[in-house]
Computed example of a mutant assay.
Amino acid sequence: MPPTSGFRRSTGFIPVLALVVLFLVAVTVYAVSVLSDSEEKRPEPAACTATADGVSYHLTPGRTETAALIAGISVRRGMPARAASIAVATAIQESGLRNLDYGDDAGPDSRGLFQQRPSQGWGSQEQVMDPTYAANAFYDALEKVPNYADLPLTVAAQTVQRSAFPDAYADHEAEAKAFASALTGHSPAALTCTLAPPSSSGSPEAVLAAMTAVYGPVEATVEGDRVTVAGTGTYGWSLAQWSVANADSLSLDSVAFAERRFTRASGTWDPAPASENAVVLTVVRVAEQP
């Protein structure tokens, strides 16, 4: 056999190997392209964001709505923003801002946002399961703490709660402060939400009823799909950002105040002509299927 016969056999292998490599590269490029396209088309998960000092904190729309209720009640009571920070941090620690119908390590009869115990005088189980009642009960106790606004947050919270983990509230201070500052109106345009398309139409009357349940009577007018609520300064921003926090459940399309407008489509506050003296809310109208 000629000594070159082995070399001739190997020369046929190299082109085949090159074709295999090219095929694998093409398949890899295609796969990466398909995955990239699917990532770009995949909708972002619904979430609300509060930004403070350049740092962003995120909660689900449902939990943000709960934080908005807690903060809005503090505004109604005329309490400082610090009170809302303490209350929101406490509710994050105790329940994750969920209205729990069971107890935790605090006691078998603990219930609600703040895991309040009927056996310790917080009210009946039915009462502490009402978020509005629970928030007011927390604030009633907080107001009895001398100089609570000047205390470290975890000390003020622990004085009210008497928890087995007295330092745990401090873990949530930065997040609670960011949401509370926005929702009490002290940080304008600091709360945004990325939301899925609405599945049902909104109701201006339902929006107004939900707002007054938290803030008490408001001066408002309803015209078509629009609700206009009188408000200025921090109070106006509290109403506006409460509305953003509730945009998902109330099917709100836009919220405008102080020459800024939040839209469901953009998920951001953008410059827009708007009254300084009123918060203008527009609900979504979803076309009915034939």
Rank of each mutant, 00 (worst) to 15 (best):
S238Y: 08
A213T: 15
D167C: 00
V75E: 05
A174Q: 14
S266L: 04
V286T: 11
V27P: 05
T154L: 02
L183E: 00
L142I: 06
A83P: 02
H172M: 12
D167K: 15
T11M: 11
D167A: 13
V21Q: 00
V283L: 03
Y133V: 03
S199N: 10
L69C: 05
A81S: 14
D130G: 08
L19W: 07
A149V: 04
F23R: 11
S187C: 00
D225N: 12
L24Q: 13
L153W: 04
T221V: 04
P271L: 08
L113Y: 10
S56G: 09
T51D: 00
A135D: 01
G231M: 08
T212N: 09
D253L: 13
G54V: 05
L208M: 12
T154W: 12
A106H: 06
T4R: 01
P204R: 03
L208K: 08
W242M: 07
G123Q: 12
D109L: 13
L100W: 07
E205L: 10
P197A: 13
W122A: 12
V283C: 02
T51S: 04
V279F: 07
P197W: 05
A46K: 03
L24S: 14
A18I: 15
A18E: 02
Q93R: 07
G185A: 05
A46E: 14
S95D: 04
S124I: 09
Y30E: 10
H172P: 02
T192E: 12
A18T: 13
V20P: 01
